[in-house]
């Protein structure tokens, strides 16, 4: 057998077509795997999209909040204190409060002498 003979045999065997189903199976598995690997990214993109949208809405609300007019200054009016009630003094109190002028008298002085000649007690009664 020459070199070319066995080499031709091997090449012919290698060149023989195989069942196309083998290729189809590989392609299907690859595409399924790619689809599966893409899904988490899609979900993540969807979640982040929703999050971004919510954030945008919140920012928009914050920026376009209706202008609230400043509060009017509150005038604190303290009403004047009510006049003190007029208390009519009772007649007795009036008499005590406003004693009638009495005529000036000399104070009554009483001198006590004790057994000790050095001690003398004066009692002055007004």
């Amino acid at each position: 057998m020459s070199h070319n003979d066995w080499e031709d045999i091997l090449r012919a065997a290698h060149a023989e077509p195989i069942d196309p189903a083998h290729y189809t199976a590989v392609r299907a598995r690859v595409m399924a795997e790619i689809e599966r690997s893409r899904r988490p990214w899609r979900r993540l993109a969807w979640i982040s999209g929703v999050g971004a949208m919510a954030a945008a809405i919140l920012i928009a609300i914050a920026l376009h909040r209706p202008e609230v007019p400043p509060l009017a200054p509150v005038a604190i009016a303290i009403p004047p204190a009510p006049p003190p009630p007029v208390v009519r003094p009772r007649p007795m109190e009036i008499a005590h409060a406003q004693p009638a002028p009495r005529p000036h008298r000399e104070p009554l002085t009483i001198k006590f002498q004790t057994s000790d000649p050095n001690i003398i007690i004066y009692w002055i009664a007004d």
């Binding site: 045999i9 091997l10 012919a12 065997a13 290698h14 023989e16």
Partner: peptide
């Protein structure tokens, strides 16, 4: 030699 044989030899 058949195809099957060639494949087997290879």
């Amino acid at each position: 030699i058949t195809q099957a044989e060639r494949r087997r030899i290879l």
